[in-house]
Design a protein around this nucleic acid. Structure first.
Lengths: 279, 279
DNA sequence: CAAATAGTGTCTCTAAGACAATATCAC
DNA sequence: GTGATATTGTCTTAGAGACACTATTTG
């Protein structure tokens, strides 16, 4: 760019040479990752489909602070990467799976949110394609597990977040403190044993995900290349914790998908046609 | 919290005592503020209403880098404040006006975005109530001006951003690089003479604002306590750069506003009733 | 054939948009 | 009275939700 005349250019170079970036206080910067996927429970009845569950990956911390407690995967920003790149890298490093998409949730910068000092977190949702092989991968690691997620408003207007893995049940209580501009923030009433302010991050991440899951492009990120319309519908139903009439869902989906020639067979009922996202 | 047993508690205290937060690279962190307001142009015709314009505050940089160029107000995060508090403080310091609301836009962390070094910006929209006294305030300062904003897609699918103040016209060209999860990002094709990556931040801020201005609560932030329904409609029309039929807008607004006993008089036509937001 | 899911057709209701018509002020 | 905005009412249409019905598989 030729923004300056030659004299100014020299002045700017001089300024930058003498500029000491360390003269301002600098916080540490991290990303925290809420990696979500949809998992399929086995069914006892051969003709009934297994129940779908929304799952979130947590890791058991091996170091202080919060050693031995469950936390979101995440880590410090490197000088050579953007926060988005950091979010993708952390997802791959900690879950072993490459996300099909990442979505910003917000910046968490409360002064006391980390006992190690001033650490600002940029939170992201990572969407992991529902695919049994991939999901199993994370399950092998001793310290990274997929927890089933429940998040509902209870009687007194507060929200309870329940995360379950095998016989482990983590429970947090939160209160919605603002909901504007399409951004919802939560204050922690009771963190349970979740590390840091991660209950609040998980609540915000899930709310952000719910907000955009009506978009078919986002639903597709949860599924492999080809899928049945029922699977597509289950993505939305599972994340929003609602149920819809298939006829109406199919009518809306028609615009965004195209048929393939293949069918899913082997279930104890009429085989479903496989679809793919429309270009 | 009694997360630990006494032994672990001691271990964590020991860990934190020895923890050196400076062992990781730390970027500098700033906020940049896109402060928007709606301004009313004077009309030559006594009975025709003045045209409303969407305006953005820019400041003329007094220091390198980009000395003498126009930029978004903003500054470094202090150790004692959250990024949201920083955004409010910077808005007040640089425009002299307290925002009626702030809204997160996103994190900008490209490695080379600031020639001074690694500086990550958290961008916010500040909404400034349309109120002639307040707006004049900023206008007094020599280095802070309200620029009229135009932002449109042009023939070849790129976006042009035009900012005008008096005889100053800043023009930038951008390309949409992603639009998902309700978040749109732009890459700068031509920054014009705007400082840093601020063209890209302004485009993202305006897109974020347009996305949520259908929400009446957000429209209200642009207006004083009481207002006419036409003023309310103009907020939306001006920001979205569209025009709507009053009958339809009023039907939608009815749910969110309540009448007062007052009217606006003095215009060369039927007086309008003043409304306020419904509790 | 029984039980489950896959898939189609249609009715109703609501909300958004278009448009026509009336009301009221300052000059 | 004239020209502007303020305000009300109504017609049409698109889309969401409800529901009834048919199709196809496996044990």
């Amino acid at each position: 760019m030729s923004l300056y005349n030659p004299e100014e250019l020299l002045q700017e170079q001089e300024f930058l040479k003498n500029y000491d970036i360390t003269k301002y206080d600098r916080p540490s910067v991290t990303t925290d990752i809420a990696a979500f996927t949809i998992r399929n429970e086995e069914s006892e009845n051969y003709r009934r489909d297994g129940k779908r569950k929304l799952s979130l990956m947590l890791i058991k911390r091996g170091e202080f602070p919060f050693k031995g407690h469950w936390a979101l995967p995440g880590g410090f920003l490197k000088p050579t990467e953007t926060v988005e790149q950091c979010a993708v890298r952390e997802t791959v490093e900690e879950t072993g799976i490459s996300p099909s998409a990442i979505m910003p949730v917000g910046t968490f910068s409360e002064i006391e949110r980390d006992p190690r000092g001033r650490i600002i977190s940029n939170a992201y949702v990572s969407i992991i394609t529902a695919d049994s092989e991939n999901i199993k991968g994370g399950d092998d690691a001793d310290d990274a597990k997929w927890f089933d997620v429940e998040f509902d408003k209870n009687e007194n207007g507060e929200y309870s977040l329940i995360l379950k893995y095998s016989d482990i049940e983590l429970k947090a209580v939160l209160k919605e403190v603002s909901n504007k501009f399409g951004v919802t923030k939560y204050r922690i009433i009771d963190s349970g044993t979740l590390a840091f302010d991660h209950a609040s991050i998980i609540a915000a991440a899930l709310t952000a995900l719910r907000k955009c899951i009506g978009d078919f492009e986002v639903m597709f990120d949860f599924l492999p290349e080809t899928f049945t319309l029922t699977e597509l519908q289950c993505v939305q139903e599972t994340i929003l914790n609602v149920s819809m009439l298939p006829a109406n869902f199919r009518r809306k989906a028609a615009e965004y998908v195209e048929e393939t020639d293949e069918y899913v067979t082997g279930a104890g009922h009429r085989p479903a046609k496989l679809y793919r996202r429309k270009r």
